[in-house]
């Protein structure tokens, strides 16, 4: 056993290294993502981008932007602007342009969905215990009295000084649109950093930008509403941009006396929307997808289908107990197999 001469050793070393390079070459080209997951908005937020110089910083910046917005829009955060509006109910509150436009958008979809999408549903959510209290079925009387304090049409907009007046007793909860809005801000930040292949997933709401680094489409599965959180096997969404959001009665719910009570409450009746199990919406931006998935779920089978077919650039899949419906352009974003 003698240590080989320097030259022989060097040659053996180079041969071994070359062998390893050839051996693992296929693996090397596969790892083309940088990704990061953080926990805020009561859920996990994952950002995935093409691995390139500056990707890490861009993702951190985007996460930071999203965190800031999530604090601003959380009604349970005493510093947030939504908390301020709720605490000053009955008074005029001056808003920044961003927030004012966000509320305007909520108003637009309130009208479009004939009141099914309503960010002033907060008092009802609290009554059912989907805010911070214990979940329970309230008495009918309670529901009726609380319903009087719900209805976004009562929110007074003043475009001149970008202010709103929320009637006393009412309060806002952006739960049905905040995630989407925040994802859009995160994506804006990534695009501002020059990243054009990216994926953001916040609690099941997904937005993608561009194609994947290997030039293929982003493949997104949709969760089945029942069973052990399986994914629909007969189709997947294949996207090169745009956003998907899913609303289902399995997300947040409680069961009392064998009946499932989900967090998807119809603000017009005060009770759960029960026609469907799940709705998945594709839209150009995450805020639209987020709002529409909630809206369609609450609007119901018939009204929901009509709305989707009237909107351009929006596709949807709805499922109820024994059947599934997809919009006429759904095949453009999905691959059935």
């Amino acid at each position: 056993m003698v240590f080989p001469g320097k030259k022989v050793g060097l040659i053996v070393f180079i041969v071994v290294l070359t062998g390893i390079v050839l051996f693992s070459r296929n693996q090397v080209f596969k790892s083309d993502f940088y990704q990061k997951t953080e926990y805020f908005m009561d859920t996990s937020v994952t950002v995935k981008v093409k691995k390139e110089p500056g990707a890490e910083e861009a993702v951190s910046r985007s996460m930071e932007v999203m965190k800031q917005w999530s604090l601003k829009l959380d009604r349970f955060n005493s510093e947030s602007i939504i908390n301020k509006i709720n605490n000053s109910a009955g008074e005029r509150v001056l808003l920044t342009e961003n927030i004012y436009n966000l509320l305007k958008m909520a108003g637009k979809y309130y009208n479009l969905s004939s009141g099914a999408f309503d960010i002033s549903v907060a008092p009802l959510m609290d009554l059912w215990g989907f805010g911070r209290e214990e979940k329970h079925v309230p008495a009918e009387q309670e529901i009726n009295s609380v319903r009087e304090r719900v209805g976004l049409s009562k929110l007074e907009f003043n475009t001149a000084d970008m202010s709103v007046i929320l009637p006393a007793g009412m309060s806002l909860d952006l739960g049905g649109m905040a995630k989407g809005f925040i994802i859009d801000r995160g994506m804006e930040s990534l695009q501002g950093s020059g990243i054009n292949s990216a994926y953001i997933n916040a609690g099941g709401n997904i937005r993608v930008s561009g194609k994947k680094p290997d030039n293929s489409l982003w493949q997104i599965g949709v969760r089945k509403p029942r069973g052990q959180a399986e994914v629909y096997q007969d189709f997947i969404l294949a996207l090169a941009g745009g956003s998907v959001a899913t609303s289902g009665d399995y997300e947040r719910y409680f069961i009392q006396d064998g009946i499932r009570y989900s967090h998807l409450i119809d603000p017009r009746t005060g009770y759960q929307a029960r026609e469907m199990l799940t709705v998945t919406v594709y839209a150009p931006t995450a805020v639209e997808a987020d709002i529409l998935s909630t809206s369609l779920f609450i609007m119901g089978w018939q009204a929901g289908q009509e709305l989707v077919e009237n909107l351009t650039g929006v596709e949807a899949m709805m499922a109820r107990e024994d059947e599934r419906w997809v919009s006429s352009g759904f095949h453009k974003i999905a691959v059935f197999r």
Binding site: G204, N205, W218, Q219, V231, I236, E251
Partner: peptide, 9 residues
């Protein structure tokens, strides 16, 4: 087998 980039739920 099922190569997904993500799941919407």
């Amino acid at each position: 087998e099922d190569g997904l980039d993500g799941v919407s739920w």
